[in-house]
């Protein structure tokens, strides 16, 4: 027994103890980095362009990125298991076009909204079945769903579908003033932001406080071990795709409510934004480690980047996807470096 005690915690003194303590928290490091980057961007933005650190700008940051936050939360679940969902952007396109057309055709708007969410659920379930029961690689299955969603949206319409001005859906995009600041510098939120906040809180609860959530992490660590431990691997993998699909549907509702219209080309490239946000927030692309709150920070980093690009004016808006892609690559490379360091 004495031999055992010497093994795990050999001489926890001095530098080694510090190194050990640091290595214990190595997986929070990327998330901390994301927070630092976010703060750094705010400070830089304020210094370079001004009018960043004010209620108005920060409120808008939340309002304009509520849908991205919701998407990112869904993708965090999938990526934590070591999977991927490329269909999120296309699901939003189909769901929002279908929803707006149904509402304009006289459907009960609330029923239509429910259907928008359920469309996402159906896409997620289809991906899940392909991945789990037919062992199609996740990116192939969700890529097929991406083409399908985009194709179905194009069948419905190829022009912008405008939401009626009195549609209740628009109420989800109404700006609610919470604090009346000087001039227009108010704290403003929309029901969409509240929905996003609830989604984040719920996801945090599920991931950290339920067995399903812990199984998600276990699968990402080692799917084989998780199965041998008797955890419900198959069901959980189904769930993460269903969650991702459903949240895509919900993001469609929130986005459409803010924009007031829907089109078949909505959400092109959003899968990249959502993956980048998740990865920037510290979730390992190979699964098993990450935090949903980090993903939220990641989404806000991307949102803030758009604000800064707009303010700067010198960078063409077309270059945004190039920059997002570049950032994603840099973070993935960083992850590999950290992992390689840890293995040593």
């Amino acid at each position: 027994m004495s031999a055992l005690t010497t093994h795990p915690t050999a001489e926890p003194t001095g530098v080694r103890a510090l190194a050990k303590r640091l290595s214990l928290h190595l997986d929070t490091l990327p998330t901390a980095a994301a927070v630092v980057i976010f703060i750094g961007m705010i400070v830089y933005g304020e210094a370079a362009y001004g009018r960043i650190v004010q209620f108005n700008t920060l409120s808008n940051l939340l309002i304009n990125n509520a849908h991205l936050v919701i998407l990112t939360v869904g993708l965090t679940f999938v990526i934590l298991t070591g999977g991927i969902d490329l269909s999120v952007g296309a699901v939003i396109a189909f769901s929002s076009v279908a929803g707006v057309m149904l509402m304009n055709a006289g459907w009960n708007p609330w029923l239509a909204m429910l259907l928008m969410v359920l469309i996402g659920t159906a896409f997620g379930a289809a991906s899940g079945v392909l991945v789990q029961y037919f062992h199609v690689q996740p990116f192939i299955a969700t890529l097929a769903m991406m083409f399908l969603g985009r194709g179905l949206a194009s069948i419905l319409s190829t022009v912008p579908e405008r939401l009626a001005d009195d549609s209740p859906l628009r109420s989800l995009g109404t700006q609610i003033e919470i604090y009346d600041g000087p001039k227009v510098d108010d704290i403003v939120i929309t029901p969409g932001v509240i929905i996003a906040a609830i989604v984040v809180a719920a996801a945090f609860f599920v991931l950290h406080r339920t067995r399903t959530g812990r199984t998600v992490y276990a699968i990402g660590g080692s799917e084989q071990s998780a199965a041998l431990m008797g955890l419900p691997v198959a069901a959980t993998k189904m769930w993460v795709y269903i969650i991702s699909g459903t949240l895509s549907g919900l993001a469609a509702v929130v986005y459409t409510a803010r924009l007031g219209s829907a089109q078949n080309i909505t959400g092109i490239g959003w899968e990249l934004d959502a993956i980048a946000a998740t990865v920037i927030g510290g979730t390992l692309l190979t699964g098993g480690a990450g935090f949903v709150l980090g993903s939220v920070v990641g989404a806000l980093v991307l949102g803030l980047m758009n604000v800064l690009i707009t303010r700067d004016g010198g960078i063409p808006p077309e270059a945004t996807t190039i920059i997002t892609g570049g950032i994603l690559l840099v973070f993935v490379l960083l992850q590999r470096a950290v992992l390689a360091r840890r293995r040593e």
Partner: peptide, 18 residues
């Protein structure tokens, strides 16, 4: 680098159009 092919080429897919 050893990235999964779909991630590498997805980045080029979206950044390429940009």
């Amino acid at each position: 680098v050893g990235l999964q092919p779909f991630i590498s080429t997805l980045v080029i897919m979206l950044a390429g159009r940009g």
